[in-house]
Each structure stands twice: as structure tokens, then as C-alpha cells.
Design a binder for these strands. Structure first.
Lengths: 202, 202
DNA sequence: AGTTTATTGCCCACTGGTGTGCAAATATCG
DNA sequence: CGATATTTGCACACCAGTGGGCAATAAACT
């Protein structure tokens, strides 16, 4: 058999993509698994990445860039109310949710928790800031301090994303954004916001 | 040195406890790590458990029993309103949250996802039922279907529990229960419930 | 056509975790 | 004090994953 050269460039990208899929499913996937998922042989992976850690590093870099790019979208707006800010935040980050999840999965094992925290810091800081603002303005009624509430929101949204990935549910982010608003206790604002922009899917 | 016989019974229990701690921290902990954490040598672990899988199995059994016991507390009540039911549910499960988390951590790797799902099924089913009832009665205003919302709540509460474990925050479950009520969109009920029973810690 | 280049297949060595056998050490119990 | 039970230390074989060397192969480019 020995299929050789497919366009050559795609290969690296396909390996990276397969690594994302496989490591997202199981952080302990072997290079053999990943290579197989990419349609190549294990030996070929070493032609594009120095080793497992390099592969993971490349994956992290890609995810970090996607995340940073998505964050840049939300960074712009001026002083709108906290509820709108949170909604914009969730909607902007929703498309990169899978990359976000991969980073979290890679954290304890392949990447240092420190490095992942560093990548995720801007997103988490922004979320915390929004929550803190909303609570101070009295728009968010949850009594839980911003930091824990931020972590809770993170996990809540990832859980919803997982349901979408699993096919259990379907959402383009608008429903999840509303859920986030409700979770922080922004009842009135939630209705206002959804009336303004969201498509009525229910 | 070769310290021999400590009361003998404690050993097995200590290994089990250490396994819970270590595997909770990192599901890939080696038996060497676990043994060391338990204050014994790796070889000793094999004197109490047939192997890694047996150890994990024992851990799962213990966790399952604790969970089942906690659930039995909530199973009793008759037809009270959904908000109260959810609050009781969270408060009852809060103390076994760590066991719950261990089971989830062990799922993808050491135990089959199937076995873990089977253990967790009663808790999840009850949560889903409560949510469904609350939504039908119009007490829970979240539009997200019960199953995804249940998963989201699960992760939200575990995130809060992690914060408590990490020392970032402190809660005996009452704050988290309120957060859960708010998250499902039970604003009015939340106030009513907390006024009735929760201790004002803020 | 011929050359280049990526991929493959098979080889090997190294590491880390697992599971086990067996003799020695020692705390507890009678 | 002696018998018992348990833990320990060290031996080993085994397996899976990693990383890399090297020749053969076949697509792509000229």
C-alpha cells in the first residue's frame, strides 16, 4: 500500500485537527490513536511535530489564537449595561467553545495548569469583571462572589455545549446566553435583552 | 525501617481514602502515587486489592453507596413545590459532592462510562424530574429542556464545590442551593425559600 | 522522462506502570 | 515469650507508549 504524498500541507493540519478531536475525547489518547484518526501512520506525526508535547503545544497555540480572536470581538464596546455585556460575551465565545474545552482538558496532564490558566486568563478576567459590574449595579442578583460564579458559569456553558455536541440539544448560543443571564440572576434584563436581539426559537 | 502492622484494618480504609484523593486530583495517578499518599508501599496495596481495577471498583462502590444513602434522604417527601424540592435535593447531595465528582472523573478511564451513568442515574433522574415539574408548573422560567439543564446544574454545582475545596470560597450548600434555584429561573421562589430556612451568612 | 519530497514500514532502545513471588522484619495477640 | 499476621524490600517479567534511524515507495513538480 504505502500511500505517500497527499498535497503535503493538509497533513499537518489534519493531524492537528485529529489531535483536537481525539484529545478532546480522551486526553490520554496515544499518538497511534491520533495518527490513525488523522489517516496517517504514527511515524508520520513525527515528521511534523517533534513529539507529543510539541503536538499538544501546537494545538494549544491554535486554540489560544482562536480564543484571543474571539475575545477581540467583545473587547470593543463602551459602557453598556452588564447584562448586555454578558450576553455579548457568551455569544462571542460560543463558537470557540470547543477550543476552550480542549484547553481545559489538556490542562491537568499535557500542558501545565499554569500555562492554560495564562491563556484563559483574559476570558476569565473579562467574565469576572462583567459579573462584578452587574452585581454592583444591582442588575445581577446572585449573591455568590464573582470569581466562583464565573467558574460556575464557565462550567454551565460548557455543559450546555457538550449537550449540543452530543446531539441531545441544539443551540447557536442564544439560548445558552439567556441561560447565563438567568443564572447570574438578571431576570428583568434577560427578557429585555432577548426581546431585542434573539430569534424566538421557542 | 520496615514499619509493619498498624491496626491492620485502617490500612485498607486509608488506601481507599488516599485513592479517592489522588484519583480525584489526577485520574492517571499511579499505584505508587496512591500508595505513597496512603503512607504505604505499592506492594502493600496488592495485599488489599487484586489490582488497580479492583481498587477503583472498591472506590466506586463506596461512592455509590454514599450517594444512594444521600438520595434516600430526599426521596421521602410528598408533593411540595418544585423549588423546595430542588433546594432539598441540592442540600442533601452537597455533602457527597466529592464522591460524585470522583465518579465523574473515573468515568472516561477506569470505569466504563456506562457503569458510572448507571450509578448516577437515580440522582440525575430525580433532578430532571424536579426540573420538569418546576417548568410545567411555571415556577422555573428557564426555557432549556430538563435534560441539558440538569447537566448544566450538575456542572455548576460541582464548580462551586471545587471553589470551596480550593479555599476560594466557602459554603455549606445553602448558597449553592440558592444559586441552583436562581439558575433554573425560580426568582420569586428563591426568596421565599431562603427566607424560610437558610441562615443569613451574607 | 527524472528529480524532489512526503509518507510509509520495520527496525530498535528506553521509560513507566502493572502484577507477582518470596524472604525478612516487626507489631499485635495469646 | 512465642505464634501470628501484616507490612516491607527487592527481585522479576510484561506491556504500552514514546522517540528515532533508515531504506523503500510513490505522488507531485520540472
Amino acid at each position: 500500500m504505502t500511500r505517500p504524498r497527499r498535497p503535503a500541507h493538509p497533513t499537518r493540519a489534519r493531524i492537528l485537527e485529529a489531535a483536537g478531536r481525539e484529545l478532546g475525547r480522551d486526553p490520554d489518547s496515544s499518538l497511534t490513536d491520533i495518527a490513525e484518526a488523522a489517516g496517517v501512520v504514527r511515524r508520520t506525526v513525527y515528521a511534523h511535530f517533534a513529539g507529543r508535547s510539541a503536538l499538544v503545544e501546537g494545538l494549544a497555540t491554535e486554540a489560544a489564537e482562536a480564543l484571543r480572536h474571539a475575545l477581540a470581538t467583545v473587547a470593543a464596546p463602551g459602557p453598556d449595561d452588564a447584562a448586555t455585556a454578558l450576553r455579548r460575551f457568551v455569544l462571542a465565545l460560543w463558537p470557540v467553545g470547543d477550543r476552550y474545552r480542549i484547553l481545559l482538558r489538556l490542562a491537568p496532564q499535557d500542558l501545565g495548569a499554569a500555562q492554560v490558566d495564562e491563556i484563559l486568563a483574559p476570558a476569565r478576567d473579562m467574565a469576572t469583571a462583567i459579573i462584578e459590574r452587574g452585581q454592583r449595579q444591582g442588575v445581577f442578583h446572585t449573591r455568590i462572589p464573582p470569581a466562583p460564579l464565573g467558574r460556575a458559569l464557565e462550567k454551565l456553558l460548557l455543559a450546555l455545549l457538550d449537550c449540543v455536541n452530543a446531539g441531545t440539544w441544539s443551540d447557536d448560543g442564544t439560548q445558552s446566553a439567556r441561560a447565563a443571564l438567568i443564572a447570574v440572576g438578571a431576570e428583568g434584563s434577560a427578557k429585555r435583552v432577548t426581546a431585542g436581539t434573539a430569534s424566538p426559537s421557542a
